[in-house]
Write a protein that binds this DNA or RNA. Structure first.
Length: 299
RNA sequence: GCCUUGGUAGCUCAGUUGGUAGAGCAAGGGACUGAAAAUCCCUCUGUCGGUGGUUCGAUUCCGCCCCAAGGCA
């Protein structure tokens, strides 16, 4: 049996579709989401509730504290054994999530090296970027790894730093690493093809619902429990905006507009990312059961 | 009814001492290999409120009209 991957932009209805697939095909849901891994971030991440899970087993949700940082590598380390275990038990893994980068970490074996992240190195280069400029930092990369420098825009400081970090840690150029992506498992991927306007309307409705459900209170609670404002998870849409608003009440009236705006941009980036995914099938919007049957035709 | 100010991109506005216009935001497209809900790159758009006049040429100057805001009655 092939793996099933339910992807697509935020607010497109991935959760219910994944649950329907899991129940119909004897599967278990493997969340591929960079924020659902955090405990305590529930409302703003639209984390599936027990009712929504409807009895289907879910994995990789609530696996780290909100004070911790997390990376694709951490995700890969956690996810692969889970997928293997599901397979070993004769069940079908139903990957579900909006973080394409994370989903790819399960679906493909990359020729990527094992240079870890090093906070001290990152800080060092961040300081250089700040004091001497992005162009200077980029020139530094050009010296040790011209090919990577060529691919990266000087303004993309995070990636420039990562390339520098890889070189400093391993002595190898990032560009010299094999970037071919070999599928780990046979799979078929699906995304609901909403019309852009409809998707945006859904984003609007969902944002309103989150605010009603107490998103602001959730953020306050997280902060009160000791999660720092600059914690990685606080970069999430819906959370970072509320943090700002709590500091400047004048922004309160525009809160939902800002959150929706950022969510729309995020949805667009997701669409761009998923368009390239091999074996992706776009489903016409319909009832969950209809779409589930459509999926069945590809398995 | 009178006076004043304004009407330029989806929004907020800039500008042209007369040669058919540009910023920010929004929107669209793209990149992405250990921060990815992050980070970054690229691009579009206009009957310049309407209508006459002056002019080789008007969005710009003049007249009239319409609309909005404020003020006076």
């Amino acid at each position: 049996m092939k793996l099933i991957a339910i992807c697509g932009p935020t607010a497109s209805g991935k959760t219910s579709l994944a649950v329907a697939c899991a129940k119909a095909f004897g599967g278990e849901v493997v969340s591929c989401d960079a924020l659902l891994v955090y405990k305590g971030l529930n409302i703003g991440t639209a984390k599936p509730t027990r009712e929504e899970m409807d009895g289907a087993p879910h994995h990789l949700i609530d696996i780290v504290e909100p004070t911790q940082s997390f990376s694709v590598h951490d995700f890969e380390c956690a996810a692969l054994p889970v997928v293997e275990d599901i397979l070993a038990r004769g069940k079908v893994p139903v990957l579900c999530g909006g973080t394409g980068f994370y989903m790819n970490a399960i679906l493909f074996r990359s020729g990527f090296g094992h240079a870890g992240g090093d906070a001290a190195i990152r800080e060092k280069y961040e300081r250089i970027a700040e004091e001497r400029g992005r162009e200077y930092l980029h020139a530094l990369l050009r010296e040790c790894d011209p090919e990577s420098a060529e691919k990266l825009h000087p303004n993309d400081v995070k990636r420039v730093i990562r390339a520098l970090e890889i070189y400093e840690l391993t002595g190898c150029k990032k560009s010299s690493q094999n970037d071919s992506c070999v599928p780990r498992y046979p799979y078929e991927a699906f995304a609901v093809n909403w019309e852009r306007q409809t998707l945006y309307a859904r984003i609007h409705e969902r944002t309103q619902a989150m605010l009603q459900a107490g998103l602001v209170e959730e953020v306050k609670g997280l902060l009160a429990s000791g999660v720092p404002e600059n914690a990685q998870c606080m970069q999430a849409i819906g959370y970072k905006e509320v943090v700002e608003i709590l500091k400047n009440d004048d922004l309160h009236s525009t809160m939902s507009d800002i959150i929706e705006q950022n969510t729309r941009r995020y949805a667009k980036r997701q669409l761009t990312f998923f368009k390239k995914l091999p074996h992706l099938h776009w489903l016409e919007p319909a009832g969950t059961e209809t779409m589930r049957k459509e999926i069945e035709r590809y398995l």
